Simulated scan of single mutants.
Amino acid sequence: MRPADLYTVDALLAVAVGGLLCPYAALESPLHGGVREPLWVSVLVGLALGLPLAVRRRWPMTVAAVISSVATVALVTGVIPNFAAAAPALAIGLSFYTVAVSTPTRRSMLCAAGCLALVSVALVLTAGDLWSRTGAVVYAAVMVAPAWVIGWLIRERRALAVRQSDHLVRQAATEERLRVARELHDVVAHTLSLIVVKAAVANHVAEADPREAGAALRVIEQTGRTALTDVRRVLGVLREDSPYAPTPGLDELPVLARQAAIGGVDVQLDVRREEPAGAVPESVGLAVYRIVQEAVTNVVKHAAPAACRATVTVLPDEVRVEVTDDGQRPVLLGGEGHGLIGMRERVALHGGEFRAGPRADGGFAVTASLPYRVAA
């Protein structure tokens, strides 16, 4: 609800309470006799009790103090008989609710306790015996205190919702940073591996075979341009006004296999589709591409020259990936590298399973399954 609408509601509430209920209560005569006040006094007291509710959201504690003080004076002087205390109690309860909703707990509790004490004293002074006085205090607490409790609960619930929203925002930002970091790692690691391999070739044959060195440098140039395009695409996602190329997926796997051949790895790619093209979600296709890319890059870095086989099977409800090689890799003493961690995170993001490790007959194997749901 807009602020203007809230102030309109408060104004109508003030008119109803201050123009009808409280003046009606003030016009009531005491049960045991007493001086009847003039009509204008009753109306004025009723307006003084109800009209401050129109600005209760702007000055909640001031409004609560004013209404409680007026109610106390009205009850002590008999302008409002104690049996008609429900009307001022309604005005006080509304002000207490606003105090609890809009004011920190400690301040609102002190304000509510002070105002409630004033009203309780007034009821006690106008009551008869001890039993009536005790009942008057209980009556005041039952009529007024629940409004503060309800307001406090709503304030706490809103604060909890804000904290949860902030947590979700921070979590989304963290996940986005991790996603961008994974993308950049996959792009840079794959590209630099090929560049290093071809740079070593160019350096080795620079004098003996300038043509071969030139070919290696052209590969480095092409690979670098491709990497720059991928980096711009990844960073362009962070800017809504920045156009970027489509994300790579299953259709780009043959290009990936040809790039790996430049690094000395013969990749035999086998893509088996049981679902029509376009059925696999883009996020799953990107994850499959990056997993194959990282697995092949690891072969280039750690096992080249070697033979590598990449099998991608697209089933109706999941995509299975298996990348194996027959190369010899050094033993990693520091646990998994960033590449394996990134692949494991991608698979976990889609609720799949991931395994990576040495094969019994030599070489290394990476397997993953990524479930997906076809859009209706």
Rank of each mutant, 00 (worst) to 15 (best):
V231I: 15
R225W: 03
R233Y: 07
Q222H: 12
A213I: 07
R233Q: 14
P210D: 08
L253S: 13
P246Q: 13
N203I: 02
V231D: 07
A208F: 00
D241A: 12
D241W: 05
D251C: 03
A206K: 09
D251S: 02
E252T: 05
A216P: 07
N203G: 15
A200R: 15
I220N: 03
R218L: 15
I195M: 10
T226R: 14
K198Q: 15
A199V: 10
V205H: 10
P248I: 07
V234W: 10
V201W: 02
L238R: 15
P246H: 07
V205E: 07
L228G: 10
D251R: 07
L192N: 09
A208I: 08
R225H: 06
R239C: 07
D209Y: 01
V219E: 05
G236W: 10
V201P: 01
I195T: 10
H204M: 04
E212W: 01
A202M: 04
A216G: 05
H204W: 01
T223A: 02
P246A: 09
G249L: 06
I220Y: 06
G249A: 12
R239E: 14
D209G: 02
G249S: 06
E212D: 04
V196N: 02
I195N: 05
P210T: 08
T223V: 10
P254W: 04
A216E: 04
L192A: 11
Y244N: 11
P254M: 04
L228F: 00
A202P: 01
V205P: 02
L250D: 02
E207F: 08
R211G: 01
A215N: 08
V197R: 07
E212H: 03
A206I: 14
V255I: 02
E221M: 02
L253C: 09
P246I: 06
R239G: 04
A213Y: 08
R218V: 11
V196Y: 07
G236Y: 11
D251T: 10
P248M: 05
L192I: 11
E252C: 06
L235Y: 15
T226V: 01
L250R: 01
G224T: 15
T247I: 03
V255T: 12
T229I: 05
D209H: 12
L217T: 09
G236A: 10
G236V: 13
V237Q: 15
T223H: 01
I220C: 08
G214D: 13
L235I: 13
V197W: 00
R211E: 14
L235P: 09
L194Y: 00
L253T: 08
A215F: 05
L194N: 06
A215W: 04
L253Y: 08
V197F: 03
D241N: 11
R239V: 12
D230N: 14
A227T: 03
V234T: 15
A227K: 08
E207Q: 14
L228Y: 04
R233H: 09
H204F: 00
V255A: 14
A213T: 12
A216L: 06
Q222G: 09
P254R: 10
P210K: 11
N203H: 09
P248V: 13
S193P: 01
D230R: 15
L235D: 11
L194H: 05
R232S: 12
R225V: 03
A213E: 05
P248T: 05
P246R: 03
E212I: 02
A200L: 03
R232T: 10
D241L: 02
V255Y: 03
L228N: 08
E240N: 06
S193G: 12
L192V: 13
L250G: 03
A245G: 06
L250N: 00
R233L: 13
K198P: 00
L228E: 14
